[in-house]
Design a protein around this nucleic acid. Structure first.
Lengths: 327, 327
DNA sequence: TCCATCTGTGTAATCGTTTTCAATTAATAT
DNA sequence: ATATTAATTGAAAACGATTACACAGATGGA
């Protein structure tokens, strides 16, 4: 476990020279460089990042705050972040908050204590006041979900437009009664998607049935089943469902299969996200595809730019309507 | 961005005392403690982990090496690891190798450079020679997949027995022709599960058809579809499939749905892992449930024990046959 | 030949903690 | 009141790198 001093001694040079061989090899004479490299090899020296990080006051670690890694939506985003981070010599600290404020505090402390150089927040349930406070001092980017009135930079898609297109697609297929499986409207994306839903209905002069709008607490499979049961118990049922998450839609699909309702003939279903699994279901799921991987790379690049003192501006990425078997 | 010196000055004590207030509050007088805490609050002081880590020569970071985070099998393991780590004041560095040796090297370098205190390896395709070499100097645990001839501690399940039970279950349902969707036999778990498969067949005096044994390169949905097509093209088809991964089985299910083959009537399918999705499919998937979360917590506890110089011994956890609709 | 310039290298300070050891103060026993 | 012991505190040395600054030797021009 040699350190830079031993290498310097063995090579007969100063520690400064060893450091230079490592960090700016061009300023040092080929001859001394060779001596130093020889010593490094002989001693099996590996520079310690602990010393390096302290001296440079950086950790080269990026905090990635996710509500839950069980939702595959985040998986591709994380892959994108990881790739961008790696390309720029950063690593990621993946943190699942489970929408648990205590956990969140643990993770926030990591950046306060300099264990992380910045944060990518993807948790809609994040404590936005703390986040705003932190953003005065630390580099922070919001990815996918964001807060309007904070001036924290974000990358996302046009949720209103995406929802509008999804519902328009259903209407054009002849559906007049479209249910909405939404999440809690305290989240911006939920409000925006609902607006898109309403705009489409209004544009085609269709009435809005309040009982067709189901709010679920969580975006998961079970909530999808639950919401579907409520819809199916209505005496006037809708003929199509627009779900703001593929996981909810998969739950709906499952419930249809269980009760023998034919999809898309008796009930059309459209999801949101384009998670991998949406293509594995029976029938496959029509959905709004979000550019997850790209959301990740862009978020990471923005964050690193910000860590290095640069200015970044908000980014809206493109989405896409993916028509498959469920509509 | 105050440091310990400024706090000491403001409180009128030495830095040693400040450090003690933080790390062993009981040895310092209540009065001085109050002074120090007051100064800490006034200055908004947060101790830097960079300094701390250098001094303690530790990073309190655990490297988690996963082949791919797209496979939900690893998600619950990761959750378990994270919980255990957090409980003991560690954090995890999640690293997806994508079975890419270059990436793997980047991650290995993190432990060589003291950026991580230990490794939990879950990648079957890991470079075992490098891993063995590293294990002489660093704390390493293998989780789920392991190498027999290395003396790196591991936690896993009894793969042979699990496979045996799965196939026995199919046989008891009357299936005489059982296909095996396996992964490459260079992996230990693949060899063990194949052995369990053969033991069950032999025990019931059933012949082993080589053409019923399909080896797939990857454990994903597409490979499952591919393998199913090959099986269905045989003139003598099996009546049941034992797949060593739920993802493969989901692919098989999808292909059955597409071609109108009834599951389980015309083809029974049993998976392995019990990923969340296995309960969302149509029909739901019978599977061998692995204790993923527990694999994670145990692996993390073992690793931390080892990081602290303790000795750990290999652990075999229990699995369970989960009978659902696909058999 | 001499001075100016450029290159390569070394010295030592610095990043922010923890901890050993010594010194001081407080507490207890005589 | 004094000697002895115990409890608090402080000074200074690590931990392992990077880098500003100074210095020496080489190069080139006049």
């Amino acid at each position: 476990m040699a350190n830079i001093n031993e290498v310097a001694k063995k090579a007969g040079v100063s520690v400064a020279t060893v450091s230079r061989v490592l960090n700016s090899p061009n300023v040092v004479t080929p001859k001394t460089k060779a001596k130093v490299e020889d010593a490094i090899n002989k001693l099996n020296y590996e520079p310690s990042m602990l010393g390096r990080n302290l001296r440079n006051s950086e950790s080269r670690l990026l905090l990635v705050l996710v509500p839950s890694i069980s939702n595959p939506f985040y998986i591709d985003i994380i892959k994108g972040i990881e790739q961008s981070a790696l390309d720029q010599n950063y690593n990621i600290l993946l943190c699942e908050t489970d929408s648990n404020p205590e956990r969140e505090e643990i993770y926030f402390d990591l950046v306060r204590k300099k264990m992380a150089d910045g944060i990518i927040s993807m948790d809609p349930a994040v404590n936005i006041d703390t986040l705003k406070e932190l953003s005065k001092q630390y580099a922070i980017i919001q990815c996918s979900e964001y807060s309007e009135e904070s001036d924290i930079p974000y990358v996302t898609i046009d949720n209103e437009e995406a929802a509008y297109r999804a519902v328009k697609h259903l209407i054009k297929l002849g559906h007049q009664e479209v249910a909405l499986f939404n999440s809690n409207e305290k989240y911006l994306y939920a409000r925006e998607r609902k607006q898109g839903y309403m705009r489409a209905l209004q544009e085609y002069g269709l009435p809005i049935h309040d009982e067709f709008i189901i709010m679920t607490d969580q975006l998961n499979f079970d909530s999808g089943i639950e919401a579907t049961k409520r819809i199916m118990n209505l005496k006037d049922r809708p003929t199509a469902i627009f779900s703001v998450s593929d996981l909810l839609a998969v739950g709906a699909l499952k419930e249809m299969n269980r009760t023998g309702v034919k999809v898309p003939e008796e009930m059309a279903i459209i999801g949101f996200d384009n998670i991998e699994f949406s293509n594995m279901t029976y029938p496959t799921l029509t959905t709004i595809a979000q550019p997850m991987y790209q959301l990740g790379t862009v978020a990471a690049n923005m964050l690193i730019e910000k860590v290095n003192g640069g200015e970044v501006s908000n980014t809206i990425l493109n989405h896409e309507l993916l028509i498959r078997e469920s509509t």
